[in-house]
Every structure is written in C-alpha cells, then in structure tokens.
Amino acid sequence: MSRPSSRSTLYRLIEAGQLAHRALLLPLAERGLEPGDDAILFELGRSGTTEMELAAELGLSEVALTTRLSRLIDRGLVTRQAVGPELADGVALSERGVRIRNGLADHWTQLEEALMGELKPKQRKKLGERLKRFVDLLSF
C-alpha cells in the first residue's frame, strides 16, 4: 500500500484543521483560559442561564461545569445573578466576560473569513454542506 500523498485533499484538510485548532486555542492561552472555556463564554453571550441548563447545553456534568465556572467567576468573566422571568439563580457574563467573548468571536470570524473569503455565497454553502456530510460519515 502506498503512502498517502501530502498533496491529497484529505491531507490538506487534516493539516488545515490542526492549524485552525491551534490558532483558535492561542487567544485562549493568551487570556489564561482553557480549551472549552470559550464554549461557556459563547453560550452565556446569548443570555444568562441556570447552571443546570448550561451544563445540559454544553454536554458537561454539573461537577465539571461548576469547576470551570468557579475559575471563570474568580477571573471576573462570569457573575452569579438571577436570570429569566422566574429570576432563578443563574450565571451570566460580566462586562469583562463580554469583552473577551467578543474578542474571541472576532478572532473566529477572521479565521472563517480567511477560509471562506474568496468563495461566493453558493460555494460557501456547498462547502459547508459537503464538510457536514463528511463529518456525518465519519461519526459513529
């Protein structure tokens, strides 16, 4: 069996994925955050929520989420406050958390634009659909 070519599309896709992953982790590390903290910040950026709802949305155990939230609260990125119409105990982003979340989102947008910037809208949509199909085929 021959060795996979470094010119193959799959090889380039793997290489791009690894480099994109590293590029997305860099601003987290620069801010003293851990991988996965961005998911919490993005989810809380939509609105405040209860810890139970947040754990369910992120697929984390309540214990794992509590550990992460404690660290983010200590860093001043998340605050405990009443949320929703029932004013349930919950968590939301602080002003600092909003700024950091926005910075991370801007960085994500820049990487997305570097990937898709030269493509026309229809080409972007087709690429997204094909990548989704590929991911679905590999998911078992």
Score class of each variant (00 low, 15 high):
118 E>G: 15
27 P>C: 02
73 I>F: 11
27 P>M: 00
99 R>S: 12
118 E>I: 02
54 L>W: 01
94 S>E: 04
131 L>D: 01
31 R>L: 15
19 L>I: 09
79 T>G: 10
131 L>A: 00
139 S>H: 15
23 A>K: 12
97 G>I: 03
109 T>C: 07
57 E>L: 10
139 S>N: 13
36 G>L: 05
5 S>H: 01
100 I>D: 05
23 A>V: 09
16 A>I: 07
9 T>C: 07
61 S>T: 15
68 R>P: 03
63 V>D: 12
57 E>K: 15
88 A>F: 05
90 G>Y: 00
20 A>N: 12
120 K>R: 15
84 G>Y: 05
106 D>L: 12
65 L>R: 02
79 T>P: 04
42 F>S: 08
34 E>P: 06
51 E>I: 05
107 H>K: 03
12 R>N: 01
37 D>V: 08
75 R>E: 09
125 K>N: 00
54 L>V: 01
46 R>V: 06
101 R>P: 03
52 M>R: 10
125 K>L: 09
72 L>M: 03
122 K>V: 10
68 R>I: 03
15 E>Q: 08
100 I>N: 07
72 L>P: 04
77 L>W: 04
51 E>N: 10
133 R>T: 09
139 S>E: 15
91 V>G: 04
59 G>W: 02
86 E>G: 13
133 R>V: 08
12 R>A: 12
95 E>V: 10
6 S>F: 13
122 K>D: 13
92 A>C: 01
25 L>W: 09
105 A>P: 04
125 K>T: 02
39 A>R: 15
50 T>A: 01
5 S>T: 01
14 I>M: 12
35 P>S: 08
22 R>G: 08
116 M>V: 02
110 Q>H: 12
89 D>A: 15
87 L>E: 15
24 L>S: 11
92 A>E: 11
122 K>P: 07
77 L>Y: 03
138 L>Y: 09
132 K>W: 11
56 A>S: 15
139 S>V: 14
121 P>M: 00
124 R>H: 11
50 T>L: 03
37 D>W: 07
90 G>C: 06
15 E>G: 05
99 R>H: 09
4 P>K: 01
15 E>L: 13
95 E>L: 13
76 G>E: 05
111 L>H: 06
124 R>S: 12
87 L>G: 13
71 R>Y: 00
81 Q>C: 14
1 M>T: 15
120 K>V: 07
